[in-house]
Design a protein around this nucleic acid. Structure first.
Length: 220
DNA sequence: CTTTGATCATAC
DNA sequence: GTATGATCAAAG
């Protein structure tokens, strides 16, 4: 079943709400997706399935899932009580000096400007997991402020060649972690002297605490 | 139980 | 190599 792109936010949200309560195996059957026994070798399976079910324009392009709506789709793994259990990847970090200089123009802020969060309940076999109640969200002023503070700290260190000081312990809600096929995957970055050196690619992630707070504030 | 650092699949 | 989609698994 091929789903056309949603016309507007209301249609997108309505579709997502219609999926709530369904098992992933049912949704997969509708869209001719094979259901893996576990996600060990299929880590992006849930996200891709939900994209198909909602009519996202799939692909590896650097734009929102719904370009005409400016909406990004993120699945959120939660336990039976609705608590988010994992961090959420936002975007990769530009280590080569081409990173945005201000929060206003950075990728993190653009990506998080409008997000459709779709909770996925359970950690058992993927097909048995349930789709939860979706939430169409934008950061409120407090959330934007804390994200900005974290981003500016990371951006400053990366921009001044101090990547070695950046690890996952930094950032209240936005952290920087490896993002690669494996630890031997290297990209170029600049050290403190401006010399090109090889480093592991990194990405920006939202701590589970942050996304947990978003769901709690809206549903409890 | 939670978090950090590492890893998996796929398209281009 | 870059991007998309994330979860795994060891360590705290």
């Amino acid at each position: 079943m091929k789903v056309p792109a949603p016309r507007d936010e209301a249609e997108l949200l309505a579709r997502a709400e219609a999926l709530a309560g369904r098992r992933l195996a049912e949704v997969a059957a509708d869209h001719v997706f094979a259901v893996p026994e576990h996600l060990r070798r299929h880590k992006g399976w849930i996200g891709q399935l939900v994209e198909a079910a909602l009519g996202a324009t799939a692909g590896s392009r650097a734009e929102p899932d719904f370009p005409h709506l400016g909406v990004e789709l993120k699945t959120l793994p939660v336990d039976e009580t609705g608590k988010v259990t994992q961090s959420t990847f936002v975007c990769s970090a530009q280590l080569d000096g081409s990173m945005a200089r201000t929060w206003e123009e950075c990728w993190v802020r653009k990506k998080l400007a409008r997000v459709l969060w779709v909770p996925i309940v359970g950690d058992g076999p993927p097909g048995e997991r349930l789709i939860g109640t979706p939430l169409l969200w934008s950061p409120d002023p407090e959330e934007d402020a804390v994200l900005r503070a974290d981003w500016e700290e990371h951006a400053h260190l990366i921009g001044t060649g101090q990547l070695w000081q950046v690890n996952a312990r930094r950032g209240q809600v936005l952290q920087v972690r490896p993002k690669a096929a494996n630890a031997s995957d290297l990209t170029w970055t600049l050290d403190e002297e401006g010399e090109e050196v090889r480093e592991n690619p990194r990405g920006f992630y939202l701590r589970a605490r942050f996304t947990r707070g978003i769901l709690e504030r809206h549903f409890f």
